[in-house]
């Protein structure tokens, strides 16, 4: 009996130590990425290349989903607002929910699925095929050459994608609210402008998306770098990227929002 209890406790302790160890190596990995960033900026075309693959190639999915999210928000919002006779507030509803929450969060979730998995799989395969070790052999730091450009590409891409998401979402909401439902055009924009604050809403949304950019790319990079060099290991790492990124984004979103609402 006592033996089994000790076994269970030992298993739990082992898992906890493992998690903390991973967290520590993740933090060290993050630090190394920052340290080697200067070296990677000297070859800026590497970063530009990665912005192309993570940012530009994600544009299609981001813009299309933004359009639909905006349209659905307008439809759903109108349905409830017209019961209270204030259907003009639809513009405020669409703009605030997009700029404050949905823009940064949905962009980050889509980004984790579209670009994060690609990063993890690519780096995991590089490790499996020993390209990373080959780089080290040639005295090229794989962190400066492979990791840092991808990191900065993600950090730059995310706010731009989130801003585009919000803008296109507002346009989608406008298309449903004004021509289709028949909300007054002037009321739609003027109520929006009266209630959306640049500092409190738009800037905070951008801050959120920068934080999500750091979190998503860092998780994707670390999972790839840490993946066991087997086919199974890479596939598991890719799954973990999506799960961990999504959880991190939603958790961070709550923390950031609670700070922003209070101040």
């Amino acid at each position: 009996m006592l033996k089994r209890l000790a076994e269970v406790l030992r298993g739990m302790g082992h898992r906890i130590i493992d998690r903390i160890w991973r967290l520590g190596s993740g933090a060290r990995f993050f630090l190394y990425t920052l340290i080697y960033s200067g070296e990677s900026f000297r070859r800026i075309h590497l970063t530009i290349r990665e912005i192309y693959f993570t940012g530009v190639m994600s544009l299609l999915i981001i813009l299309v989903s933004a359009f639909f999210v905006g349209m659905v928000l307008a439809l759903q919002g109108y349905n409830t607002l017209q019961k209270y006779g204030s259907s003009e507030a639809i513009g405020v509803l669409v703009a605030l929910s997009l700029v404050r929450e949905l823009g940064p969060v949905v962009t980050a979730l889509l980004f984790a699925g579209r670009a994060g998995t690609a990063i993890t799989a690519e780096i995991g395969l590089m490790k499996t095929t020993e390209q990373l070790s080959a780089m080290e052999m040639m005295a090229v730091s794989p962190i400066a050459r492979v990791v840092a450009p991808r990191f900065w590409a993600g950090v730059v891409s995310m706010p731009l994608l989130a801003a585009l998401f919000s803008m296109v979402g507002v346009l989608g909401g406008y298309l449903v609210a004004v021509p289709v439902i028949g909300v007054d055009n002037g009321a739609f924009w003027s109520q929006m402008q009266a209630n959306v604050d640049f500092q409190a809403d738009i800037v905070n949304g951008v801050i959120k998306s920068v934080v999500f950019g750091v979190a998503c790319t860092m998780i994707a990079l670390f999972e790839g770098f840490d993946a066991p060099p087997t086919a199974e290991g890479v596939s598991r790492a890719t799954t973990r990227t999506v799960v961990n990124s999504s959880l991190a984004v939603l958790g961070l979103d709550f923390i950031l929002t609670s700070f922003m609402i209070v101040t």
């Binding site: 192309y52 940012g55 706010p159 731009l160 801003a163 803008m167 507002v170």
Partner: peptide, 26 residues
Amino acid sequence: MDLWVGIFAVAGAAALFGLALKVGNL
């Protein structure tokens, strides 16, 4: 590739600018 990244950056900045002017109260 450079061209596309440039377009992307300009579009993102324009979206932010548009948000500030058209949606926000700047």
